[in-house]
């Protein structure tokens, strides 16, 4: 009994977070289509519900009701599992993102509730939080690779290989850009990183400007968005690794993609913009404002830049981002050590 109640409460919390994240993911797709519409001086989807607000529901129903096509030449099991890997690896890292300071449970219930770890605004405050994020998202590569390979289609295979190569190349630059923040914060726990940025001047974006730019570029390549969306470059590869997927299996890839986008925005908020910290509003509001701002920035970038050429993307990742990332780590470590010496 002592164990059962906290376990059930934690499961409830996890389900709640997943539900909220999935809802936001659905509305990010709407946001993307509406905002792209405005950028391109057209309306975007506005027929379903007021301002098109019910569009995600309609899309979901459409994807669920469509006929499932399983390619006969496909490698059946791997073909079915690949979208699941993508979605799982896109949703799992949300477990370590601190989305609020606490959940006000101690004000609603008595002290008993806050005794559990439950009252924190994060599912699990791992002391290797950021490593966990990179570990899980590096596993996400398999979903894309296997999906492309198992479809038994040239375009899918090429799309999958491109996506895999791009993801592992840019993951290096992404990890390197974060090391600067980790050096300054002296911890891998995302909660402690947020707590260290308790005033605007302590936000790591001001102390790690180069690291932040690297993170933004490598991040948008990691999730395969314009200008790095060679993965599903329509005029070369049809739809890349998703070509042979239909109905809800395609829906899962789509979901994974937008969950990844939202996750990256949340991670950027947490690492560089003080997470839930901010005046006046409650923490969760600040967190959502910042996260959706970055989701908007990614959409903005998509509406602005054309697609790069594949060989240039790879060359840029390995020959520009990686050295600049190493340079950033070295300068940060050097300056930080000097500052520690100076301070005594």
């Amino acid at each position: 009994m002592d164990l059962a109640i906290p376990v059930i409460l934690v499961i409830v919390k996890v389900l709640l977070v997943i539900f909220v994240v999935l809802t936001f993911v659905a509305y990010t797709t709407l946001l993307e289509r509406r905002v792209l519409g405005w950028f391109q001086v057209r309306l975007g989807p506005n027929r379903v519900g007021p301002w098109g607000l019910l569009q995600p529901l309609a899309d979901g129903a459409k994807l669920l009701l469509k006929e499932e096509v399983t390619v006969t030449a496909a490698n059946r099991w791997i073909y079915l599992v690949a979208p699941l890997i993508v979605v799982t690896c896109a949703l799992t890292p949300f477990a370590v993102i601190p989305f609020a300071k606490d959940l006000y449970l101690d004000r609603i219930f008595d002290q008993a509730a806050s005794k559990f770890v439950l009252n924190t605004g994060v599912i699990s405050d791992l002391n290797v939080g950021i490593l966990f994020v990179f570990a899980v998202s590096s596993l996400g590569t398999y979903g894309v690779l296997l999906g492309g390979w198992s479809s038994n289609n040239k375009y899918s295979l090429l799309g999958g290989v491109r996506a895999g190569a791009q993801m592992i190349s840019y993951e290096l630059a992404l990890s390197l850009s974060v090391i600067g923040v980790l050096l300054l914060a002296g911890t891998l726990s995302l909660t402690q990183i947020v707590e260290a940025q308790d005033s605007v001047w302590k936000w790591y974006v001001f102390r790690q400007p180069l690291g932040f730019i690297l993170f933004l570029i490598a991040g948008s390549a990691e999730i395969g968005r314009t200008p790095f969306d060679l993965v599903e470059c329509e005029n070369e590869l049809v739809a890349g690794y998703q070509t042979e997927y239909s109905a809800m299996k395609f829906g899962l890839f789509y979901l994974g993609e937008y969950a990844h986008l939202l996750f990256l925005s949340a991670l950027m908020t947490t690492l560089y913009f003080g997470g839930w910290q901010g005046p006046f509003f409650p923490p969760i509001v600040w967190f959502l404002i910042k996260t959706f701002f970055f989701a908007f920035v990614f959409i903005w970038i998509r509406a602005t830049y054309p697609r790069l050429r594949y060989d240039r993307v790879m060359a840029f990742g390995w020959k520009v981002l990686l050295p600049v990332g190493l340079f950033n780590v070295m300068v940060t470590a050097f300056v930080y050590t000097l500052w520690l010496q100076y301070r005594g």
Partner: peptide, 25 residues
């Protein structure tokens, strides 16, 4: 925990991807 995460990032995440690449290509 550190070794566990490095195990995932390095072995499961990077090295095995290369194996898979060779088999696929």
């Amino acid at each position: 925990e550190f070794v566990a995460m490095v195990q995932l990032v390095v072995y499961a995440g990077a090295i095995m991807v290369l194996f898979l690449f060779v088999i696929m290509l």
